[in-house]
Design a protein around this nucleic acid. Structure first.
Length: 950
RNA sequence: GGGCUGGUAGCUCAGCUGGUCAGAGCACACGCUUGAUAAGCGUGGGGUCGCAGGUUCAAAUCCUGCCCGGCCCA
C-alpha cells in the first residue's frame, strides 16, 4: 500500500498568484510611474474628487539648486502620505508643488561661473545676468521634479508654482506695495549682518556660525564725571572681541545688579600697561581673571558697588584727542553678564543689535564708520581706508599710544559667517527697508493672535513660534543684490518719503505680470510713475526683496483666488527649522496684509541624522542620499522608513536601519502575496454574512475595525507615528502567525463550498481591500502592484480607491477580550509543543494531541475541536479526569504569567491523512481512499473539489 | 551662552496624570516545517529605562544638577 500512495497535492487549494515574493522595487517602480503617467492618474484623481470637501496642504517651496537630499525627500514623502491619506479618506486633496527660485545661492553660482570664465560680473547687464540665474533655476527645478516624481510623490507636477513666474513676481511686488501703502514699510538705518565680501546684508538664514580667531582687547575708559567722587579718578575697563568697533564706540554698558570692584593698583608685572596707583572698575567676580590678564600683581579693593550706582557716570573715548573727542556715557544694559570679560560692554550703536537698541533708548547717535566693502569711511579719524579685518593692529597701536590698552589677546569662538563665501561677517549700519513689528500698523500683535488660532503638530511648535515672534526685531526685507523681485517703489528726492500711490503700484504690478520683474531694469521709471509724477523727482529703489518675503507670499500667489485650492491652507508642513523661516515669514506677511495666518495648522518634522544621532554633513561623510536608497532598495523602502519613524523628532537613517526597513517591507509584501494566493478565483457568490461566520473570522473583522479607526484618526490629526508599526504588527502577529497559520488547513483542504472556508475567504477579501488601501498612501508602488494583481485593468488603480467603509457592527469588544484570552492560553500550548519538539517526541504540531487544563472561567471559550483548530494540533483533550488534572498540575507545562493553565503532552492517535496531514483515527476507514480522513474523503469525492483536480 | 527638544534591549518604537512598566516588532540563537519555501511557525537570550543626587512607603515615570545629541538663536 505504501508504494501505491496517491499524491493528493493536486486536490488541495494551494495559493496561486503571479505577485512575486521579491519586490525588485528599483526595477518595478519606474514601470508603475510610466503607467500612472500613461493613464494620467493625476487628472483622474482630480476629476474623481471634484466637488468633495477640499484639503489643501500648501507646499513650502524647496530651493531650486542642486539635487534633493534626504531632508527634502523626508519632507515630500510626509506631505505625500498626508495628502494621499486625505484623498483616500474622501477629500479632494489637490497638491500644487512649488519652488523657491530667487536669491543669493543661485546668484552666487552664476557669479562663480563668471569668475571661472574671467568675466567681471559688474560689467554685465543686470537683465542678462538675471536671465542666466533664471535658466539655472529652471534647470534644477526640472531635476528636482523628476526626483520627487521618482519618490512616488503625487502632485500637479506639470503646473507647479515658482517664485520666478511672472505672475508670482508681480504679486510679490504688489504685496510689498501693500505694506508700503498701509504705512508699515519704512526706510531705516540700523546695523545688519553684512558681508564685506558679497557686499550685501544677509538674512539670518544666510548666516553660519564657525570658529573664528578674534583679537581681544581690554581697554580703559577714563571717567570724567560720576555721582560718587571716588569714581572720577577711575577708569571703566571693557573687553571686546572686535577692536575694530572701537572707532564706533559711543557708550559703555553695565549690569545694574552686578557687583563692581573699585580697585587700586599697587603692583604690576614687568611690561604691564597698568600703572601703580591707578583706579580701575571691573566686575568683582571677574577681577581675578582680569588681574592676571593685565599683569596686576598687587591691589587693594577700595570698595564694591552695585552697577546701578554708576547711573549718570560719563567717560571719555579712549582715543580722545585723536579725533574722538566726545563723551561716552555709562548706561544700564540687561544683556551684560559676568560670564566673560570685565562686566562692562563697550557700545557701538552701528555694530550690534544690543548696541543699537541701547543707543536708540538713550538717544545716542549711530555713526557710519564702515563702508560696504569693509573699509573705514574717509571721515573716520586714524583709520580711514583700513579694512576692518585688518584693523586690530592699528586700533591696538592707537589705544596703546593713548595709554588706554591694558592688554590684548586672541580668542577662538563661534562667529557669524556668510553661508556662501564662508567669510566672517560684520554688523554694519546701513539704510534698509523694514516692516514694522510694532506701532499702529505693526504686525506683531496680529501675528501673536494668529499663533493662538493655529493648531500645531506637535504642540510644542506653538511655544517656539510664539517666543520668536514675541522677541523678533523689525523685519529687514531689503537686499543689495540682482536676482530677485525688486522693492518696486520710488522715493521723493526732496522729502525722502517713499511714494505711496496705489495707481503707481497697480501699474507696476500689471507690467510685471506680463513682462516679469525684469521690467524694473528694462523700462524707464516714467513707465511706472505714469503722468502724475516726473521721474527726475524720484529715486528708483534698486534693492531687491529678501527671499523669505517671497516665499512668505506664496499663499498670495498660489492659494488666493485659485478655485482649485483655497485660502487659507489647511496645513503647512515643514522641518522644524522653518519656525524661523517659512512659517514665520508667511505668518508675518499674511498678518500684515490680511490680518490672519495663511494656514489653519502647522506640522513640523525633525531633521535627518545618522545612525548615531549626529547631524549629516559632507565633512563627516555620514550622508545618505535618497537617490542611493532608491537605487538600492526602492522608493517604497524610503517611504516606509519615514512612516516607521517618529517624525516629530529627529529621524535616524543608515545602513542597518535601511536593512531593517527592507525586512519590515518583506513581511508586508509576503502577507499581500499570501492574501492574493488565498483569494485566487474568489467569487462574490462565496460571500458569507457576518452573522454566519465563526468567531475567529469575526475577530479578524474586529481588528479591521480597530485599525480603520486608527488610520482615520491619523488622517485627521496628521499623527501617524505608530500607525505603520500597528499595520505591520497586524500583518506579522495577527495574520501571518495566527489567522493565516490556523486557516491554512480550511483554505487548502476544505471543500470549496464549506461554510468555514467561504467565511474565511470573505474575510480575506475584506482584509485585502483594507490593507492595500491603508498601505497605499505609504507603499504607493507595492500597493498598486498588489491591487493590479487582483484587479487588473487599464483603468484600475488602488489610488483611485477610498478607504473601505467599515460597518460599525464589526467592532465587538467582548469577542476581542475572549480572543485575547484564547491567544494567551494558546501560548501555553505552543510552549508545551516546543518542549515536546525539543525532546524529539514530535516534529509538526499536527502530530500532537495534548490535554489542556484551564480554570473554570475559561472552559466556555472553545470546544475541543476549536482548541485543536487554533493550536494547529490534530486533536485536543479537555475535560480531564481528577487524576489527569492532578497530573497536569504536577508535570504539565505551564507559564508563570498565565496561572491555572496546564498542558499535558500527548501524541495524536491514528494515521496521518495523506491530504491534510492531520493524524486522525478514521484514516484508513475509506476503502476507495484509504489514506484519507473523513473530511478529505468527502472533499475528494464531492465533486466540488479544487479547480486543479482535473 | 540662551530658547525649544530628545537620550527605554543591536535597530525602530510602546510605556512616562508615579505603584504587575520593564514591553512589542525587527535583528540574533536554537528547533520545527518543506502545501506562503531566497518563505512560514515556535521557543529563547538580551536593557543598572544617559549619569548623579533628591522628593516619596514606592520613580523609566516628579524635582535638581551633569553628560551626550538635534533645531533655532547669540
Amino acid at each position: 500500500m505504501s508504494d501505491s500512495k496517491r499524491d493528493y497535492r493536486d486536490t488541495v487549494f494551494l495559493p496561486a498568484t503571479a505577485f512575486p515574493m521579491r519586490g525588485e522595487l528599483p526595477r518595478r517602480e519606474p514601470a508603475l510611474l510610466e503607467r500612472w503617467a500613461r493613464m494620467d492618474l493625476w487628472a483622474r484623481l482630480r476629476a474623481a474628487s471634484k466637488g468633495r470637501e477640499k484639503f489643501v496642504l500648501h507646499d513650502g517651496p524647496p530651493y531650486a539648486n542642486g539635487n534633493i537630499h534626504m531632508g527634502t525627500a523626508l519632507n515630500k514623502v510626509l506631505k505625500d502620505v498626508i495628502n494621499r491619506a486625505k484623498q483616500m479618506a474622501g477629500y479632494d486633496a489637490n497638491y500644487v508643488p512649488g519652488w523657491d527660485c530667487h536669491g543669493l545661492p543661485i546668484e552666487w553660482k552664476i557669479e562663480e561661473q563668471y569668475r571661472a570664465a574671467g568675466r567681471d560680473k559688474d560689467a554685465v547687464d543686470p537683465v542678462a545676468f538675471r536671465a542666466e540665474c533664471r535658466a539655472y533655476a529652471e534647470h534644477w527645478l526640472g531635476v528636482q521634479r523628476e526626483e520627487f516624481i521618482r519618490l512616488g510623490v503625487a502632485g500637479d507636477w506639470w503646473h507647479p508654482y515658482s517664485t520666478m513666474d511672472f505672475r508670482s513676481e508681480a504679486i510679490i511686488a504688489g504685496e510689498i506695495g501693500k505694506f508700503l501703502l498701509n504705512g508699515s514699510l519704512y526706510r531705516g538705518a540700523k546695523p545688519v549682518l553684512w558681508s564685506p565680501v558679497e557686499k550685501t546684508a544677509l538674512a539670518d538664514a544666510e548666516v553660519e556660525y564657525h570658529d573664528h580667531k578674534s583679537t581681544t582687547v581690554w581697554v580703559k575708559f577714563p571717567i570724567v564725571s560720576a555721582p560718587a567722587p571716588d569714581l572720577v579718578q577711575a577708569s571703566i575697563v571693557i573687553w571686546t572681541t572686535t577692536p575694530w568697533t572701537i572707532p564706533g564706540n559711543r557708550a559703555v554698558a553695565y549690569g545694574e545688579d552686578i557687583d563692581y570692584a573699585l580697585v587700586v593698583v599697587e603692583g604690576v608685572a614687568e611690561g604691564a600697561s597698568a600703572c601703580i596707583g591707578e583706579h580701575l572698575l571691573v566686575a568683582l567676580p571677574l577681577w581675578p581673571e582680569v588681574e592676571k590678564t593685565i599683569g596686576v600683581t598687587q591691589h587693594v579693593v577700595r570698595r564694591v558697588l552695585k552697577g546701578r550706582e554708576l547711573a549718570g557716570t560719563v567717560c571719555v573715548h579712549p582715543l580722545k584727542g585723536k579725533g574722538y573727542d566726545f563723551d561716552v556715557p555709562a548706561l544700564p544694559g540687561d544683556f551684560v553678564t559676568t560670564e566673560a570679560g570685565t562686566g562692562f560692554v563697550h557700545i557701538a550703536p552701528g555694530h550690534g543689535e544690543d548696541d543699537w537698541q541701547l543707543g536708540q533708548a538713550h538717544g545716542l547717535p549711530t555713526p557710519d564708520t564702515v563702508g560696504g566693502d569693509g573699509l573705514f569711511l574717509p571721515h573716520v579719524p586714524l583709520f580711514a581706508g583700513v579694512h576692518v579685518y585688518k584693523a586690530a593692529d592699528p586700533v591696538c597701536a592707537a589705544l596703546a599710544e593713548s595709554g588706554a590698552l591694558l592688554a590684548r589677546g586672541t580668542l577662538v569662538h563661534a562667529y557669524p559667517h556668510s553661508w556662501r563665501s564662508k567669510a566672517p561677517l560684520i554688523f554694519r549700519n546701513t539704510p534698509q527697508w523694514f516692516i514694522a513689528m510694532d506701532g499702529p500698523k505693526g504686525v506683531r500683535t496680529p501675528a501673536l493672535a494668529a499663533i493662538e488660532a493655529t493648531r500645531f503638530v506637535p504642540a510644542q511648535g506653538q511655544n517656539r513660534l510664539r517666543a520668536m515672534i514675541a522677541s523678533r526685531p523689525d523685519w529687514c526685507i531689503s537686499r543689495q543684490r540682482a536676482w530677485g523681485v525688486p522693492i518696486a517703489i520710488f522715493v521723493d528726492r526732496r522729502t525722502g518719503e517713499p511714494l505711496r500711490d496705489p495707481e503707481v503700484m497697480a501699474r507696476t504690478v500689471a507690467i510685471f505680470e506680463t513682462e516679469g520683474s525684469d521690467a524694473w531694469w528694462t523700462r524707464p521709471a516714467q513707465d511706472f510713475l505714469g503722468n502724475d509724477y516726473n521721474a527726475e523727482d524720484y529715486e528708483q529703489i534698486r534693492d531687491i526683496v529678501e527671499v523669505w518675503f517671497e516665499s512668505g507670499s506664496t499663499h498670495a500667489f498660489v492659494l488666493e483666488g485659485n478655485d482649485a485650492l483655497k485660502w487659507p491652507a489647511d496645513l503647512y508642513l515643514e522641518g522644524s527649522d522653518q519656525h524661523r523661516g517659512w512659517f514665520q515669514s508667511s505668518l508675518l506677511e499674511a498678518c500684515g496684509t490680511r490680518g490672519r495666518a495663511p494656514y489653519d495648522a502647522i506640522l513640523t518634522h525633525g531633521f535627518v541624522v545618522d545612525e548615531q544621532g549626529r547631524k549629516m554633513s559632507k565633512s563627516l561623510g555620514n550622508t545618505v542620499a535618497p537617490q542611493e536608497v532608491i537605487a538600492e532598495y526602492g522608493a517604497d523602502i524610503l517611504r516606509l522608513w519615514v512612516m516607521a519613524s517618529d517624525y516629530t523628532e529627529d529621524l535616524r537613517i543608515g545602513k542597518e536601519i535601511l536593512k531593517q526597513q527592507a525586512e519590515l517591507y518583506r513581511r508586508i509584501r509576503n502577507t499581500l502575496r499570501w492574501l492574493l494566493g488565498a483569494l485566487d478565483a474568489f467569487d462574490e457568490a462565496e460571500r458569507v454574512p457576518v452573522a454566519e461566520m465563526p468567531e475567529l473570522e469575526r475577530w479578524v473583522l474586529h481588528r479591521l475595525a480597530e485599525l480603520d479607526g486608527r488610520v482615520r484618526e491619523a488622517t485627521e490629526t496628521f499623527e501617524w507615528t505608530g500607525v505603520f508599526a500597528e499595520l505591520h504588527g497586524f500583518c506579522a502577529t495577527d495574520l501571518s502567525a495566527f489567522y493565516f497559520d490556523i486557516r491554512k488547513d480550511a483554505l487548502y483542504c476544505d471543500r470549496a463550498d464549506s461554510p468555514r472556508r467561504r467565511a474565511c475567504r470573505t474575510v480575506l477579501d475584506h482584509v485585502f481591500r483594507c490593507l492595500v488601501t491603508w498601505l497605499a498612501p505609504v507603499l504607493v508602488f507595492t500597493a498598486e502592484e498588489a491591487w493590479l494583481a487582483r484587479f487588473p485593468g487599464e483603468d484600475e488603480s488602488v489610488h483611485l480607491q477610498t478607504f473601505p467603509a467599515i460597518p460599525p457592527a464589526w467592532r465587538d469588544e467582548a469577542l476581542a477580550a475572549r480572543w485575547a484570552r484564547i491567544r494567551e492560553i494558546r501560548r501555553v500550548v505552543t510552549g508545551a509543543l516546543e518542549r515536546e519538539r525539543a525532546e524529539g517526541r514530535i516534529g509538526a504540531s499536527l502530530q500532537a494531541a495534548p490535554l489542556l487544563v484551564m480554570p473554570e472561567a475559561d472552559r466556555s471559550l472553545l470546544d475541543a475541536e476549536g482548541w485543536a483548530e487554533i493550536c494547529i494540533t490534530s486533536a485536543m483533550a479537555l475535560d480531564p479526569s481528577a487524576h489527569q488534572r492532578l497530573e497536569a498540575q504536577k508535570n504539565g507545562f505551564s507559564i508563570d504569567a498565565i496561572p491555572g493553565v496546564f498542558v499535558l503532552p500527548g501524541k495524536a492517535a491514528g494515521l496521518k491523512c495523506e491530504r491534510c496531514w492531520k493524524v486522525l483515527p478514521e484514516v484508513g476507514s475509506h476503502a476507495d481512499h484509504p489514506g484519507l480522513c473523513d473530511r478529505c474523503h468527502d472533499a475528494v469525492t464531492s465533486g466540488v473539489l479544487a479547480r486543479r483536480a482535473a
